[in-house]
């Protein structure tokens, strides 16, 4: 866990609405695992005040890449950064996905929730990458796939790319067809999507892990601002997570505020 000043290497669009920012972090890349995240301090001013959490998306040599969508002050600031600009990166933080050997892996991503799944796909074999987006402008293009692109399947709300509807419908379709017991799920995305993934996983008795993207304060388990409900009560998602076994979470806790 390092708090380091880093320099932007590249900051580029990969679709109309999605960006990838990269920076050198030789010590951090050696430690970071798929599912772990980084806390960025984007400015030395107090506005925005708190750090912003981002999952590691890809590792290329000494370089970390993060995938992001400009949605607010912090991410918009990020999209304006140029090669050579400096910011602070704290991490790697949190836990990581647990690799599985004997099961076929289904990845289910929603929006920028694809980021940690792509990192997982870079390091481990998987069967299918199911990705859901609002529409074409924010679709993560297949050219971003590490290795084979043929097992990337899309859903968009408006049908502009792939299946028209929710990515969780693709998931349920697959589980309905074959023996669900052969599968294991990794998923990351907005809470309503994770709720659906957890509900479906329970229905078909499939194991899996969810990476939660709760609003965070410190990112290290000190402020208790990002708790999620587990079978044992609240835990800080930054420290006990962000990855949780579906079994350990409650459906109630995954309901949106």
């Amino acid at each position: 866990m390092y708090d380091i000043r880093v320099t932007v290497k590249q900051n580029k669009r990969v679709s109309d609405g999605l960006w990838v920012l990269s920076y050198h972090a030789p010590k951090t890349v050696k430690k970071i695992l798929p599912g772990q995240f980084l806390q960025f301090r984007l400015t030395s001013s107090t506005d925005p005040f708190l750090r912003r959490p981002f999952s590691a998306y890809k590792i290329k040599g000494d370089v970390i890449e993060v995938l992001y969508e400009p949605v607010g002050v912090g991410t918009r600031l990020m999209s304006q950064m140029k090669p050579g600009d400096e910011f602070c990166s704290l991490g790697p933080l949190g836990n990581s996905f647990t690799p599985v050997k004997k099961k076929k892996v289904l990845m289910v991503g929603g929006g920028v929730g694809a980021a940690p799944l792509v990192f997982m796909a870079e390091r481990h074999v998987y069967d299918k990458m199911l990705l859901g987006f609002r529409n074409k402008s924010v679709v993560l293009p297949k050219s971003e796939a590490p290795g084979s692109k043929s097992n990337w399947i899309y859903a968009t709300n408006d049908g502009s790319v792939g299946h028209k509807g929710f990515v969780t419908e693709l998931l349920e379709g697959i589980l309905k067809e074959g023996d669900p017991k052969q599968y294991f799920i990794y998923s990351c995305g907005p809470k309503p999507m994770l709720y659906e993934v957890a509900r479906i996983a329970r229905k078909y008795k499939v194991d899996g892990e969810l990476s939660l993207e709760e609003r965070m304060g410190c990112g290290v388990g000190a402020c208790l601002g990002c708790v999620v409900e587990t079978q044992d009560g609240y835990v800080a998602s930054c420290k006990s997570g962000p990855v949780f076994s579906i079994k350990d979470l409650t459906l109630e806790g995954l309901k949106s505020e």
Binding site: T46, F49, L50, E214, L224, G225, V227
Partner: peptide, 30 residues
């Protein structure tokens, strides 16, 4: 962090919000 005699679960989420040069918190002494 402040402790109490008995365990406290604290408040439901969201517990924090960023504000200009600061933040609001209602952790609820978890």
């Amino acid at each position: 962090k402040t402790i109490t005699l008995k365990k406290r679960v604290g408040n439901p989420m969201p517990r924090i919000a960023e504000t200009p040069s600061g933040m609001l918190n209602a952790i609820g002494l978890e």
